[in-house]
Design a protein around this nucleic acid. Structure first.
Length: 112
DNA sequence: CGGTTTTGACCTGCGC
DNA sequence: GCGCAGGTCAAAACCG
């Protein structure tokens, strides 16, 4: 890690991600980090985008779907009804985290 | 020791 | 057809 500047702190979503790249997007003038789910059967990808001068404005974009249950989500949703929906549950928690920080920037990346 | 992270370079797709 | 942009991969270094 750099150990020299500021470490970006992303909202904990409950999944484990491995950073595999970072680039500056000239189109929007912001930085973008690329994360991949560490699961073997999980092809889910996560992208974090934040302003070059405003690291507080974080934009997280999830791509793909998790093929495994999220560990943290499971314990976090222990209060849920006995019926677990699996995928829908995961996104439910993520939406919670996003609405807390990235509601400023309006952008919907969802897939077609 | 293992695992993870970081930077650079490379590749592809699309636009004009 | 070429250029640009964005995205991904690889290797190396460092930490616990």
């Amino acid at each position: 890690m750099d150990g020299r500047g500021f470490r970006l702190v992303l909202p904990e979503d409950g999944y484990e991600w491995r950073k595999y790249g970072q680039k500056f997007i000239k189109n929007i003038g912001k930085f973008r980090s690329y994360f991949k789910c560490q699961r073997s059967n999980c092809r889910a990808k996560k992208k974090a985008e934040w302003s070059a001068s405003d690291p507080s404005t974080l934009r997280v974009v999830y791509d793909g779907v998790h093929t495994h249950a999220s560990p943290a989500t499971e314990s976090a949703s222990s209060g849920e009804s006995g019926t677990s929906s699996s995928t829908a549950n995961n996104y439910n928690l993520l939406t919670q985290v996003f609405g807390d920080r990235s509601s400023t920037t309006s952008l919907y990346d969802d897939h077609p």
